[in-house]
Simulated scan of single mutants.
Amino acid sequence: MTGPDPAVARVRSAVRRELADLAVPGGAAPAADARPLVLVACSGGADSLALAAATAFVAPRLGLAAGAVVVDHGLQEGSADVAARAAQACRSLGLDPVDVVRVAVDGGREGPEGAARTARHAALAERAQERRAAAVLLGHTLDDQAETVLLRLARGSGARSLAGMPRRRGLLRRPLLGERRATTERACAALGLEPWHDPTNDADPARAGDPGVPLRSRVRGVLLPALGTVLGPGVPDALARTADLLREDDEALHELAVAALTAARRQGGDADLDVEVLAGLAPAVRRRALRLALVASGAPAGAVAHRHVEEVDRLITDWHGQGPVALPGGGVVLRRCGRLTLVPRATGGPRSG
């Protein structure tokens, strides 16, 4: 008797590793409704459909229940039909419950892709809470990770951003970050599954500069193939490996920054940071500590840019009596008496001196 197709086996193994910590001893809970529930975020594409099939196979063998959430962003004509087909595919695999959630996507400052991601994650978090899920599985692959690193590199991001998508964050888990997109496509073919092909993922090289084509699609369809032609076929693996290495560095630097911030606060309280303590830090640690302090003071994390941190850093390294530094959200940071004072928006605040 032969085993499953190698691609199917790889996807199942990846899911099994990711869910091992949730497994019920002995492989079965006392009652079906007592089994921990994992949800698969399924769009109907090859990645998430292969993930759904693997989860449907693996979860019961670990004593887990498995369901799915299909998010309809409503951005394309016929999106409701695509969502309904994805939900039916999940049910046919044995996943239960399967929920379809329609979300409203507001472009705003994030742009359509970022806004869709924000709306999707909010919907997944809400449904996971309602279902009391132990985990939500996302179908991002190594190729997605490589695209993410390139996009962030083009924006001049630091190590935290270039570390790419984490394997785990809260309830979210990405079992397939070590697998290529070709593997999920082969797994679907071997299982007789017909994934939905998102037309927005297509990018003709002739339209490489067309803003009407989603940026990630242009990276996927134009930039990565071009890099592969010039540098060789190992570019996605190398970019994903870079993300892994930078994540380790980022975690180490974050711990140092937290410790440094604690030391600076111990001298002067949460809203006052000792300049002498901060001045003695390595720049990379000091700037991370400052960013943590700015966010803790009420500045929106997504709005605190590198320039804000640099301006506050100059209050330490290039002090010549300059005035307060304005922060996103309306707060300010000023230096007085050897302290950096973080003043939230709702508070008045002393003048610098």
Rank of each mutant, 00 (worst) to 15 (best):
G302L: 06
R220Y: 12
T183H: 03
A133N: 09
D250T: 13
L334P: 00
L151M: 13
V11A: 02
E110G: 02
V149Q: 03
L137S: 07
A54C: 06
D21S: 15
V136C: 04
L315H: 01
A240W: 10
A84I: 01
D33M: 01
V309A: 11
G67P: 14
G232Q: 09
V309Y: 00
L162E: 02
G74P: 08
R160Y: 04
R335I: 04
M1P: 09
L290I: 00
G74K: 09
A46H: 09
E311G: 00
G268F: 00
G26E: 12
G330I: 06
A28H: 14
H73N: 13
S157K: 10
S92I: 01
R291L: 03
L294P: 01
A29P: 11
A146F: 01
A154Q: 12
A86D: 02
G26K: 13
A279E: 12
A203M: 05
P97V: 14
T141L: 04
V15S: 04
D270S: 03
L245D: 11
R186I: 00
V15L: 10
V15W: 06
L153Y: 11
G232L: 06
D198W: 05
L327M: 07
T262E: 15
A66R: 13
R132F: 00
T200Q: 14
A189P: 01
V309E: 06
L37A: 12
G269K: 05
T55A: 15
Q267P: 03
I316W: 00
G170D: 14
S217I: 11
G114I: 03
D204Y: 03
G156N: 08
R345K: 08
V100K: 11
L39G: 06
T183W: 07
V15R: 06
A259Q: 12
A59G: 12
V40N: 04
Q322E: 12
A146C: 10
V258A: 12
H73P: 09
G348M: 04
E126V: 14
D106E: 15
S48D: 07
T183K: 03
H197N: 04
D244F: 00
A133Y: 07
E310I: 04
R168V: 14
R265V: 01
A66Y: 12
D81Y: 07
L171M: 14
L176I: 12
G170I: 15
S79D: 13
V219T: 11
A284S: 13
Q129S: 14
C337I: 02
I316P: 02
V38Q: 10
R288M: 04
G268L: 02
V258D: 06
V285C: 04
P60Y: 14
V136L: 09
P195I: 03
W319C: 01
P236N: 08
E77I: 04
G139D: 01
L64E: 11
L239M: 05
G331I: 04
H197S: 13
A123H: 10
G212V: 12
N201W: 12
D47G: 10
R35K: 03
C90S: 11
A50F: 08
L37M: 10
L334I: 02
S43T: 14
A128Q: 10
L39S: 07
S352I: 00
A46R: 15
C42T: 04
G94F: 08
E276I: 09
A346R: 11
A289S: 08
P283E: 08
R180A: 15
D33I: 00
P175T: 13
G139M: 05
L176H: 10
